[in-house]
Design a binder for these strands. Sequence first.
DNA 1: CAAGACTGTTTACAAACGTAATCGAATCGC
DNA 2: GCGATTCGATTACGTTTGTAAACAGTCTTG
Lengths: 121, 121
Amino acid sequence: MRISDAELEVMEALWSSDRALTATEVANRIPAERGWSIATVKTMLSRLSAKGAITYSEEGRRYLYSAAVARDAYVGRESRRFVDQLFGGRLSPLVARLAEEDALDDEDIAAIEAILKELKS
Amino acid sequence: MRISDAELEVMEALWSSDRALTATEVANRIPAERGWSIATVKTMLSRLSAKGAITYSEEGRRYLYSAAVARDAYVGRESRRFVDQLFGGRLSPLVARLAEEDALDDEDIAAIEAILKELKS
DNA sequence: CAAGACTGTTTACAAACGTAATCGAATCGC
DNA sequence: GCGATTCGATTACGTTTGTAAACAGTCTTG
């Protein structure tokens, strides 16, 4: 089950909420830069629902939408797919590439080292 | 300039070659699991050419295709986009996520540590 | 009760994608 | 020389994506 870029924006809105949201609430949480009309948000909600990525409960005449897949699970799947596709399943080349692009600051480096240290114990 | 999944397969064929390739040669380098007909490969070559991702030189009545963007450059861009989109531009959460999925083996961990050590110096 | 205001659903439509067949020109084998 | 083969170019066609308008119920409010 694949989630497109535009659909992901809607998922983020749902993931960032601690409760289920109505379509209008979702629309209000979409970054304004997207410049979406409410209709577009509704389309995304329908498609995501058809894909099984979200569910809804009826509250009167409205629906309350919530994510059906956890962000962690989705992000994990996509990460795996990504490193498989471009780095042969190895994370180190990705780290090397981003390091070369100066995409890592000291804080990030320290965080990664901490994770690795934890892993080895 | 975005390269689709299917197109990427063709790019990999070109990147993995030290010289320019004909359409047939590209087709032969596509993993058999894809089960592509030669026609499909030709379509990909046309589209990639239109996108400016590859170039060709005419050799008699045939074309010799080669990548116009380096793999490193492309992969760097996509990596950046990926961590921006799903991890707020930070690499550490990605490492954490893959670590939790046991997607890192000792060798990979050592390689990453080496890269980070190098970075800090 | 009638006129809006809101919902979700259906329909729209162009661009991108995945996969491929067809076509017209060039070339190669005989 | 001429048919078969081989190229790139053109055309095809269903699905997905991005973006949205139209529509049909249901509430609300005057």
